[in-house]
């Protein structure tokens, strides 16, 4: 095999794994959209907030330290203890559930029956609110996420593939990030368990019922409010997983919330209502933008990753507005 070909394979594999990361965020969108018809723009910020909270709890930060110091002139920052990773994750999940309850009670509850576009804008407001809130609670400096995930390239793979290139070519083996591989595994586990949950449990059935028809679900005694809290909690959990992965990859920082924007074209490709769609859409975007940057990027100045996903999704939409796997939109007169 030629080194060029192997390099291409590497680009594709890396694209697939980047795609998995997008899918993790897109997944949260799909869950909420399916159950409540709300396009939750805050999903990315939820990932950031979850990651901030996890790191904060783990390293024993004093919440709102910055604010307390500003008001009382004190200088508190850490409690001085370390919380074990598993406990910290459990506590963060608790925080996300609390968050879901608050969102339901103080926002969604008051916006029932509003137009989707109003709800969408409300989630933009929510995103801004959480961004400021997260920063005030945990501080805005970049933090490192250390939950014991492996990182760096896989040496084993590099050595193993080194011999694949044709004789005489300089090839140092394939570079794949171990973290990306773990993320892929986690994503697979997550999707499988979500599917099992929604297909085989009573709550899952109730979720699907609500997704189909709110009023019909209400009429058979399903509590919409409970379901929404559950859905937002699950979405919060998914956000935590995404936050951990992204945080471990590039540090817990503000730009994390922008990955939400990258998840949007993924959704447009995969459709807003399909979990497999979110995964496959993510993979297509991941591979597509890496390949485009690899093949065409150098010719037109690079950094095409900034817009490639959106333009691809845009062109795709014009021809298939419901996405790859979304339900067909039938307009009745």
């Amino acid at each position: 095999m030629s080194a060029d070909f192997l390099y291409l394979v590497e680009v594709i594999l890396n694209g697939l794994m980047a795609g998995v990361m997008y899918s993790l965020v897109a997944l949260g969108f799909v869950l909420i959209f399916k159950a409540s018809g709300i396009f939750n723009y805050a999903q990315g910020v939820m990932a950031l907030f979850a990651a901030l909270t996890l790191v904060g709890i783990q390293t024993g930060q004093v919440p709102f330290a910055h604010l307390i110091n500003a008001i009382f002139g004190t200088n508190v920052h850490h409690f001085g203890w370390q919380v074990p990773t598993v406990l910290a994750i459990a506590l963060t999940v608790g925080v996300m559930v609390l968050f879901a309850i608050i969102v339901e009670r103080y926002i969604l509850h008051h916006l029932v029956n509003q137009e989707p576009i109003i709800l969408f804008m409300a989630t933009i407001g929510l995103a801004y609110f959480m961004e400021g809130f997260g920063d005030i609670m945990w501080g805005s400096q970049i933090k490192t996420m250390d939950v014991g995930l492996p990182s760096g390239g896989s040496l084993w793979l590099e050595e193993y593939t080194q011999g694949w290139a044709a004789e005489g070519e300089r090839y140092y083996g394939m570079y794949l990030d171990k973290l990306d591989m773990v993320a892929s595994l986690v994503a697979i586990v997550l999707v499988v368990s979500l599917t099992i949950f929604s297909q085989y449990t009573t709550t899952g059935r109730a979720l699907r019922a609500v997704a189909d028809d709110h009023q019909a679900a209400l009429s058979v005694g399903i509590s919409l409010r409970t379901i929404w809290v559950i859905v937002w909690s699950i979405a919060g959990f998914v956000a935590l997983v995404a936050g951990i992965m992204w945080g471990a990859k590039s540090g817990v920082q503000f730009s994390l919330s922008l990955i939400a924007l990258k998840a949007l074209p993924v959704l447009m490709l995969g459709g807003f209502t399909s979990i497999p769609g979110a995964i496959i859409g993510g993979l297509i975007i991941g591979v597509g933008e890496k390949l485009f940057e690899y093949a065409i990027g150098p010719l037109i100045g690079g950094a095409t990753e900034n817009w490639f996903a959106y333009v691809l999704a845009l062109m795709f939409l014009v021809f298939r507005p419901q996405g790859l796997f979304g339900e067909k939109i039938i307009e009745r007169v």
């Binding site: 804008m121 409300a122 929510l126 801004y128 609110f129 400021g132 809130f133 920063d135």
Partner: peptide, 16 residues
Amino acid sequence: HFEYIIVGGLIIIFLI
């Protein structure tokens, strides 16, 4: 940061 909170909060309040 407070600006973010206030803007975000106001948007939600206004929409409600």
